[in-house]
Design a protein around this nucleic acid. Sequence first.
DNA 1: ATTCTGCCTGGAGTGCGCTCTAAGTCAAGG
DNA 2: CCTTGACTTAGAGCGCACTCCAGGCAGAAT
Lengths: 143, 143
Amino acid sequence: MTNHGLTIADAAARTGLTVHTLRYYERDGLLLGVSRAESGHRRYTEHDLDWIDLISKLRATGMPIREIRRYAEAVRNGAGNERERLELLAAHRERVRRNLAEAMEHLAAIDRKIDYHTGAIATCEGPDTALSEPRRAAAADRR
Amino acid sequence: MTNHGLTIADAAARTGLTVHTLRYYERDGLLLGVSRAESGHRRYTEHDLDWIDLISKLRATGMPIREIRRYAEAVRNGAGNERERLELLAAHRERVRRNLAEAMEHLAAIDRKIDYHTGAIATCEGPDTALSEPRRAAAADRR
DNA sequence: ATTCTGCCTGGAGTGCGCTCTAAGTCAAGG
DNA sequence: CCTTGACTTAGAGCGCACTCCAGGCAGAAT
């Protein structure tokens, strides 16, 4: 049938996924009907790649396979569920936003710890470093 | 010995981890010597909780257990490796920053998709909705 | 004296997301 | 004709981070 389009190796190179992962995604219902050559080999279109890029972004922002499958099913079911799809994406967006905000707070806390310790080391390595100084830094690690 | 301090259940409540996870972290070398009551039961100090909060933040920002163990080992080894510890944290910070930036880009792409579709639905549900309209939105989903 | 609760241990089980293997098909090149 | 290499499938295996279980003990309450 469709004897043109990209092979699975090409698609892997273009999307950054492995051929294994591409097949796994398809088996798991994450893709929207990749066509085949007469030989039975997969042939990927640019549309397929766009879709794969989208679900890669969803994955990279933490959406579980399960939920991507639900989304893909909704899309495959055709029209009439745009609202449902949108809600899925919007719900994910909110989760990601919260996670991002939380991660940024954690990062700030880690930053503060690094700054504190950088200061402590500077003190240790200053001109008049005492033998007891390293213990202070070690104790501070437990703060 | 130390018959005061928080029980593992208290520590779980305070840190938001489960008792299972607390024991698992200890077994895996992520903690810095939690003391025991005569009965053999664990007793957590405020210092222990602070440390657990820190490694929870490291976990929440994606640091693998393996690496937290390395960091904990460095801390347990006492003084003389402040630089090493700092480098571990700093390296992690950079990874987190990159991931955050990437996640924000992905989120922006998802936002654009949502916006585009919200527009499409608004069109569909406008005063003069045609029967063929939903197909446009469905096709757009593959973009 | 028994039961209950909360803890202990070593080790098994779970869910996720890949990742890989084995055995087979197909087409092109030597 | 035969090999090479890229593909196919079903299914097994893996690493991670928990999560849970069985069996046991210690102390308080009934």
